[in-house]
Design a protein around this nucleic acid. Structure first.
Lengths: 349, 349
DNA sequence: CAATTTTACTTAATCGTTTAAGTAAATTTT
DNA sequence: AAAATTTACTTAAACGATTAAGTAAAATTG
């Protein structure tokens, strides 16, 4: 018995299996079916058995949105991040998805591409039932927080990595201050005296924390503040290349570079190669990065390795915990998961 | 006027703004509000103006699920991929999100972690209204297709990269056969005579296409089939390292390696380094990879670069086109976007 | 100006669930 | 055995939107 129309989608609705349909076939009310499927004590074992069996046979899957509408719960969370083609965020997303899945939650993804406007638009749109909560890493542009605060009045938000201390909620971070300090210490131990920290001009607490750690080490070792400084890069790879190249062609060029942003790595290597500046002989380089292939760079890249996957998991866990237990104070769920410094060829003495 | 309860979520419902509420405040019916917001010709300009203004003021956002339930359209697509911590998939996801966003669609993400069971469970759950369509790259285990075929009876599916020619729908691919051929040709031109293609044991059409292209080049150049062969790796990095190491410690070890899987790159480099086999002098290596940092590997990695972002975009576009135009035959939307071979240090003569 | 059409609404049903409240029959209690 | 309770259901309202169908008043037509 073929069932092909001459026009239309070609997709068969087959009068999608609903509770109503099950009720019809079994001569029961929809209420009974619903309760039977929910294993309610109000329904007799015999009826439950019949309902379950028919549901199985007809491949009944409850309409997600009908339930969401009724219960005011979507079993969906949103992940709002700047980009996904970045080892940190893709690993974090991995961790988030794992936890969401395990709890039967669905994961919506939104990329801000570092645009505050986009971030605002997303939060606004999500503020009406589509999700039960939000995991986010803010953009580099995010300097005001009203849009987040407004959203957070209605739904729980958990920050990870690029957190927002201004908002009282769970903040999943790594030890950025300490890592900035350790990176600088590491370079100093390797003999560097003119260390530059490359950052991107932004409002992020994590980069300022890293910079503060760096400054502390510089002070402790009484290094010259003229040479030891923070240099701002931006979102444009070609421009960053020029910035780094210009910096490295000065007579008093740095002998150590700390990149707080993974994507600057390539530009640093390229700029040095193109100017015949040898890493690590002429300049030592360490980056905040999670690329597993850092060890086969030329030379192997010393890194501060963030626990991206674990941070994603921790963030998702905190959010889901809050969703299960509505009296939970999310601010108490903040955790700091330490990063690890891995020394490789690029900082060899 | 503070509004803080002693218990509960702390999240303010503020009787979330609904059409009903707007209707109440303006002394109009919900139908009028709904139509005004949809800019219907049935509503007078004056009323529209009033409605729009109040909606703006109260920050009204339509409940997504109410509309979805009524219209049987969710404005949501699902992306089902093996993993996200992979340069191809993260770039593709980027392209997908861009297109979805531009069309006002939401993107759900599901990771199969290469498990067929997981893939089946996801499709089953999604088959009831949650999404309007699906973009997918199948797992390495996906050898049967009934679960996809079943889903595809109800909703449109578009495959990208790891496609499924058995299902009649859009398949967004790159020129895998040709690339397998070109990679082999490239190694042969560089002097290789004993070339091994490293793959992962699976059912994927793309890897078999690459292998076929490789075989063609081997035949054309009448290379010895004993040395020129396909070697299977798997999902376990440590095991792969051992497989490659064992292969490279044979007396008749290969002088050329083609890796069809990005993640094998590191194991190849490590195994060679650990055995003092010089790349490219002793063995030349080319990988299917999209890592932008391939050029600063040691030595720079020659790659077959897939147009991941473009493929993601093409896949999303095909799906959305089908969703807008239900009489579209998706199979006609299949496209092949060519990859590019980038020669670097790892295949130098 | 009576008849018709158009305008600008409202009423009420519906999407697929869940759930409070109701109810008849069976069971238990006293 | 009458009263009270429990069991296993059903009825109907709700969630928040959309939309077919209905309607009174205003505008247009012949």
């Amino acid at each position: 018995m073929l069932c092909v129309g001459s026009r239309g989608t070609g997709y068969i609705d087959m009068a999608t299996v609903t509770i109503k349909m099950l009720a019809g076939k079994l001569n029961l009310s929809t209420a009974t079916i619903s309760k039977a499927l929910a294993d309610s004590h109000e329904i007799s074992p015999a009826t439950k058995q019949k309902v379950l069996q028919l549901a199985q046979e007809l491949n009944y899957v409850p309409n997600a949105y009908a339930g969401s509408l009724r219960r005011h719960k979507s079993k969906t969370i949103a992940v709002v991040i700047p980009e996904v083609a970045d080892s940190f965020f893709s690993l974090a997303l991995n961790g988030i998805e794992e936890v969401a899945l395990a709890h039967g939650y669905h994961t919506l993804i939104y990329l801000t591409h570092e645009k505050l406007e986009r971030e605002k638009a997303i939060l606004k749109e999500l503020a009406n039932g589509r999700v039960d909560g939000l995991l986010m890493s803010v953009t580099v542009e995010t300097g005001t927080f009203d849009h987040i605060r407004e959203f957070n009045k209605q739904l729980p938000v958990v920050f990870f990595d690029r957190v927002c201390p201004e908002i009282e909620t769970a903040q999943i971070t790594t030890n950025d201050f300490e890592c900035g300090y350790l990176a600088a210490e590491h370079l100093i131990q390797a003999g560097c005296r003119k260390i530059v920290l490359l950052s991107v001009s932004n409002n992020l607490s994590i980069t300022s924390e890293r910079a503060k750690g760096f400054q502390k080490a510089v002070l402790e070792h009484q290094l010259n503040g003229v040479f030891c400084r923070v240099v701002d890069c931006n979102e444009d790879a070609a421009q960053n290349y020029e910035i780094i190249k210009a910096m490295m062609s000065q007579p008093d060029r740095p002998d150590g570079i700390i990149a707080t942003v993974e994507k600057l790595t390539i530009q640093i290597y390229l700029a040095c190669r193109d100017q015949n500046i040898n890493i690590p002989r002429d300049v030592k380089v360490i980056c905040f990065s999670n690329q597993p292939s850092a060890l086969i760079f030329d030379p192997g890249l010393s890194t501060i390795n963030q626990p991206a996957f674990e941070m994603g998991r921790a963030a998702a866990r905190a959010l889901l915990k809050a969703l299960k237990n509505s009296s939970l104070l999310l601010a108490d769920e903040s955790v700091e998961i330490p990063s690890t410094l891995i020394a490789r060829g690029s900082t060899k003495m």
